[in-house]
Amino acid sequence: QSFNMKIAHLLPPGDPRDLGAHAVADFVMADERCDISAQVFPSGQLGSFTEINEGVQFGSIEMSVQPAAYMAPIEMKSAIIDFPFFWPTDIDELLALHKGPAAQMLAETFEPHGIKMLDIWHTGFMQWTSNEPLTTPEAFQSKIARVMPSSLMTERQRLFGLNPVTMPFSETYSALQTGALAAQENPIPTSYNMRFHEVQEYMTMTFHGTLDQFVSVNMVWWNGLTDGCRDAIIEGVAIGNAVTLESTMEQEESARAEMEASGMTFVELTDEERAAMRDIVFPGIRDWWLAQTGDEGQALLDAFMAEMN
C-alpha cells in the first residue's frame, strides 16, 4: 500500500523548520517499512496558517509544522506553550518537558479536532527588536508592535503595555522601515531570515517566550497508515526535531554574529529587569488563559508545573 504526505509550513526554504520538514520527508521516503512519497511545501505555498490548519483537519494536507500560536484557534489549551516567562530558558530542561507526560496530555487535546499531534519542535526563544533598548516596562508603553494573529499573543503584548497590530510577515519589514511599527518579537534566526536587522537597531534579549512548533497530522490519514509507516514517520519526526534544533542553535549564533556585524546592538537583561517584566506579564496571561480553559486548563498547567519542580 502506498501513501502520499504533503508537509506544509510557512517559512522560506532553509529555515530550521524547513530543514526539519525535509529531514522527515527524506527519512520516510528512504525507509523500507513504508512506501510513501513526501513533499515539503514551504513559504505558505499551500495557504496561510488558518488554511493549513483546516487542510490538516479535512485532509488536503497530511502534515503541518506550525507555531503553537497558530494552533490556538483550534485548541486554546495548547496555547500554554506561549506562556511568557514560564518555560525554562535551559534547552535541555525545555526539551525534557516537550517529551514528558504533560506534553502527552497536551497532545491529546487535539484529538477531538481530528488532529494527531506528534511532536513539539523548538525553534528558539522570543526576543524583541526595536529602535531603542526595551529593558524596562516603561520602554514598551504604547509602542506599536507586530503581533502574531493569536488572542493569547495579543493579550501578552497588551500586558507588556504595547499596542499590538496584526500584519502578515511579508509586510512587516516595510512597516518597521517606515516606522509604522516600532517593535516585533521573534527568535534571532527568524528575525535574521526576515532581514529585520536592516531596519531595526536593537535586539533586547528578554527570552520571554519560546517559538515552538506543533508537528501534527490528519487523524483519519494517520489511522489509515500501516504500522510500518507510523513507526517510520514517528522516527522521521524525531530526526526532524533534532535537525531543527541543531539548525536553530547554529543560526542563533551565526545570525547574531551577522546582525552585530551589520550594526545591531544586542542588549542583555539583568535578572531584576527580567523579573520586573515577568511580574507584569505572566500572572495576567495565566489568569486570562485559565478563564477560557477552566479546570482542564488548570490540570494541564499543574501537570507542567509538577514536572518543572
Binding site: 496558517f49 483546516e54 483537519q57 479535512f58 484557534p73 479536532h113 481530528g114 495579543t154
Partner: peptide, 17 residues
C-alpha cells in the same frame, strides 16, 4: 458544514470561521 462542525473561530475576530 465542515467548518461549522469543527467549531473553528476566526483568528482575531470573534466570529466563527
Amino acid at each position: 458544514g465542515f467548518s461549522m462542525r469543527t467549531g473553528q473561530q476566526a483568528s482575531t475576530l470573534p466570529v466563527p470561521r
